[in-house]
């Protein structure tokens, strides 16, 4: 096998071996990720109906998109959703992970409980929560009434929560633009947070366990308080994990679809379109009767551009504060 050792001496085999190892994953990624993205880009300049390309339309889909108030509404709805779900989910997951990282009793039980929603079918979860939120028969309103509160419409409530709060404290007037996300959207967000939290806890736990004990011991010897230890040791050393969780939760939140499809309406995206997120808008435009895959592809690309630029922004700005 002298040729092999010759090759090895010339550092030829190692890149080749590496390439061979990369082939399986590479093929899958190219076929199922790259090619669809490229074809979506291509199709967004054409009319595509029922699987057939009907003609080149240039940037017409993008122009129509910009002129469609429903598109802008769905973008705003998605922004509310992301702005609500990401910080709350991060905060709660971190809190739970820090607690679960201690040597408490029945640790395994709690870890399982928090992870259970993640492994449960999202369809089943959505149907159960839909019942919990039901205005007349739901568990939540039952509990609220038991506690002496009034019942709420939840998934049927199109009013913005800020506006509802203002009305509740007796204000007669509230600017339309500041009504906030509808209570219906908040209900969907609650489910998303509840469901996603277990996954983030696991990631945070892994991050926490990677922090060497010496730092904690040193801090304790120096007489640091629990809060100081968290702020000066845990938080900075956990920052790579936090950054990853931030990125992945943001991306996943932009792509929310299943809960919206199953929990809202009829019609889906209701009440009054206040839960029509961008991916559902895309779905409707592509798959409903009269749908145009070219137009839906344009929506997908706009969403892609938004997520990409946000991720780049996070890498440029937020990553400066990450300690590796």
């Amino acid at each position: 096998m002298s040729w092999l050792s010759t090759l090895r001496r010339r550092r030829f085999v190692d890149p080749l071996t590496a390439a061979l190892y990369l082939v399986p994953a590479g093929v899958v990624i190219v076929i199922f990720r790259m090619l669809p993205i490229a074809s979506a880009f291509f199709l967004s300049f054409f009319d595509v109906k029922m699987g057939r390309i009907r003609g080149f339309v240039g940037l017409a889909h993008y122009a129509k998109l910009g002129a469609d108030p429903t598109f802008w509404n769905s973008l705003g709805t998605t922004a509310y959703y992301v702005a609500g779900v990401v910080p709350v989910s991060l905060f709660l997951a971190l809190l739970a992970a820090v607690v679960l990282n201690r040597k408490i009793r029945a640790l395994g039980f709690y870890r399982t409980v928090y992870f259970l929603p993640v492994v449960t079918s999202l369809v089943a979860v959505s149907m159960v929560w839909k019942w919990i939120f039901h205005p007349r028969l739901g568990l939540l309103n039952y509990l609220l009434e038991r506690l002496g509160g009034g019942s709420l419409l939840w998934l049927d409530e199109p009013h913005g929560i800020f506006e509802m709060a203002a009305t509740a404290v007796g204000w007669q007037w509230w600017p339309d633009g500041l009504a906030g996300p509808s209570l219906a959207l908040i209900a969907v967000m609650i489910v998303a947070i509840w469901r996603g939290i277990g996954y983030n806890i696991v990631i945070f736990l892994a991050g926490l366990q990677n922090i060497p004990d010496q730092y904690y011991e040193a801090a304790k010897i120096d007489g640091a308080s629990t809060m100081q230890i968290f702020r000066r040791v845990t938080w900075p050393l956990l920052s790579p994990t936090t950054f990853y969780v931030l990125l992945s939760t943001t991306i996943v939140s932009f792509q929310v679809f299943t809960q919206i499809y199953l929990m809202t309406g009829p019609p889906v995206g209701g009440p009054m379109g206040t839960t029509k997120v961008i991916v559902y808008y895309l779905f409707e435009r592509g798959f409903d009767a009269g749908g145009n895959m070219g137009f839906a592809s344009a929506v997908a690309l706009v969403l892609f551009a938004i997520i990409l630029s946000l991720t780049l922004f996070q890498r440029r700005i937020v990553e400066r504060r990450v300690y590796y």
Binding site: A67, D68, M272
Partner: peptide, 29 residues
Amino acid sequence: EEGAVEGALRQILTPKEALQGSAEAVEAE
């Protein structure tokens, strides 16, 4: 249905502004 009729029946919008909003969305269609 989602805009005008729902907005007006839930008394969030006046029938006139509800219909005008929907008409704009339909024009976009």
